[in-house]
Write a protein that binds this DNA or RNA. Structure first.
Lengths: 229, 229
DNA sequence: CGCGGCTTTGATGTTCATCAAGTAAAGTGG
DNA sequence: CCACTTTACTTGATGAACATCAAAGCCGCG
C-alpha cells in the first residue's frame, strides 16, 4: 500500500454521493480524505479491524470475504469502482466482520466516519441517500446468494461467468479477475468442481478457456444454462 | 386480516425507535398509523406490491420469502416482535422484491413511508438510527446465509434447531413455528432430507420429537454438531 | 532452479435429491 | 359431527451431484 495525493477536482464521488451536501461540508471532508493505492493481492481491511473510516473504491476491483468456521474463506461479494467498500456493517458495529482484499491494483479513498456521521446528522437528505445506497448494496448481496443457491454447479458457473462478463468486464472475451479457488469460495463449492464444470462448458463449445482468459462463444446457451440448471 | 384499534400509549416502538423524535412528530405519525391483525398463514406483503408503508411487527412471527426461478419458495429470514418487516429494500426500490407471511397470529403496525422519510430528512439523528437498524438486519441475514452454507445437512439442522430454541422460542422444549418444508426452504435442502436428519438426531437421542414439539435433550452435543458438521 | 501455489484430470466414496408409497393430521363441505 | 380432500409428515430405495483424495503439469517468484 502506498499513499496517493490527488485533488478532489472532478471526483465522481462528489456528484454521485454528495449531491445534497454544501460546498463547505464537501471541502471539510476532502481536506481530511486519505487516498491509498493497493497492489493486486493486498489486504485493504482485516476482519476485526476497528471501523473509523468510511472507505470507497475509486479504481480497481476487490473482494469482501470472511473466515468460515473450518478456516475456509467465504467470499461475500465483489466490489468495483464507486462501490462503497465499508457499507455493510459500518453503522451497526464498531469492528469489521469481514475482510477486503484487492483483486486488481486498486485505489481507495477514505473519509473519517465521524465526519460522515456528523454530516448525516445535520443533513437528512444526505442521510436518506446513504440509506438508499446501503439498502441497494445489501439487497444485491442477498439476492445473489439466493440466485446462486437455487442453481446446481453447472448453472452456478454459468451464472458467475455471465456476471463477470456482463457486470464486471463488460465484454464477451475477458480476463477472469479471480482464481478458480475464489470462484469456488464465492459459490460455495470446491475448486476442483469449479474447474471440472468450466471444462465441461468448454467441451460443450459454449466457452473457450485459455488460462484466465474466457471467451463466451454461445451466450444464449449460457443464459439458458444459468436459468434452468 | 382485520383492523385493530389501539392507542399508542406505552407502545414499545416509541422508546425503541423514536428516541430522537419530538413528541409532535410522534403524534403526527401515530395519528396515521394502521394496525392490522393477521391470522396464522395469512400473507402480509406480496412480492411486487408497491412500497408505501413502513411496517413493523408488533406481535407474532413472520417469514420473508421470495419465489425462486423454478417456482420453489426461498425463505430469506424470520422476523419477530419489534422487527421491521419492510426494512430490506424499502428505501432503494419502489416495489417489494419479497413476500411476507405470518407463521403465528400477528399484529403489524404500518406507518406512512412518506412520513418516515420526511422525518428522516428533517432529523438526522433519527436517520442515523434508521441506518443502524437497516444495517443490523441485513448483516444478520447475510451472516446467517454464510453460516448455513458452510454446514452439511446434519449441521444445518442442528444450527436451525438451536436458532429456534435460543433466538425465537427461548426454551429447550418448544413448538416449531414452521413446517419441515419451511425449514427446507430456509436452508436450501429438500423436505425429505430435513425430516430424515431430524429423525437421525432423534435416534441419536439428541432431541425428542413429537410432531411440532421439539425437546433438546443434549444441547452440548447439538452445539458441537452445529459447529463441526 | 526449486519451491509453493494454482490448475487440471481421474478415481472413489459420501452426501444429497428424486421418486415412490404410505401414514398421520388438518382443513372442508354436507 | 363425519366422510372427504388436501396437506404435512415419514421411511425406503435409487441414482445423481458433489466432495475428497491423489497425482501430475504449469507458472511465477525469490
Amino acid at each position: 500500500m502506498s499513499l496517493s495525493t490527488c485533488n478532489c477536482e472532478g471526483c465522481e464521488l462528489k456528484s454521485l454521493f454528495f449531491g445534497n451536501v454544501s460546498d463547505l461540508e464537501i471541502e471539510m471532508i476532502c481536506n481530511q480524505k486519505v487516498e491509498k493505492i493497493y497492489q493486486k493481492g493486498e489486504i485493504i481491511i482485516r476482519e476485526g479491524d476497528e471501523i473509523n473510516e468510511f472507505t470507497y473504491l475509486k479504481e480497481g476491483l476487490v473482494k469482501l470475504y470472511r473466515q468460515g468456521n473450518d478456516g475456509k474463506e467465504q467470499i461475500i461479494c465483489f466490489a468495483g469502482p464507486l462501490d462503497f467498500v465499508s457499507l455493510l456493517s459500518i453503522f451497526s458495529v464498531t469492528r469489521y466482520n469481514y475482510s477486503v482484499a484487492s483483486l486488481e491494483d486498486s485505489i481507495t479513498c477514505s473519509l473519517q466516519l465521524s465526519e460522515i456521521k456528523q454530516i448525516a446528522e445535520n443533513n437528512g437528505k444526505f442521510a436518506l441517500g446513504l440509506i438508499e445506497k446501503i439498502n441497494k448494496a445489501s439487497d444485491n448481496i442477498i439476492l445473489t446468494f439466493l440466485e446462486v443457491r437455487q442453481r446446481r454447479l453447472y448453472g452456478r458457473i454459468a451464472y458467475i461467468l455471465l456476471y463477470f462478463s456482463d457486470s464486471i468486464c463488460k465484454k464477451d472475451i475477458f480476463e477472469l479477475p479471480v482464481s478458480r479457488k475464489e470462484i469456488a469460495e464465492f459459490i460455495g463449492m470446491t475448486t476442483e468442481n469449479v474447474i471440472r464444470t468450466m471444462s465441461e462448458l468448454r467441451k460443450d463449445k459454449i466457452i473457450r478457456i485459455s488460462g484466465k482468459i474466457i471467451e463466451i462463444i454461445d451466450k444464449e446457451k449460457l443464459k439458458r444454462i444459468s436459468e434452468f440448471s
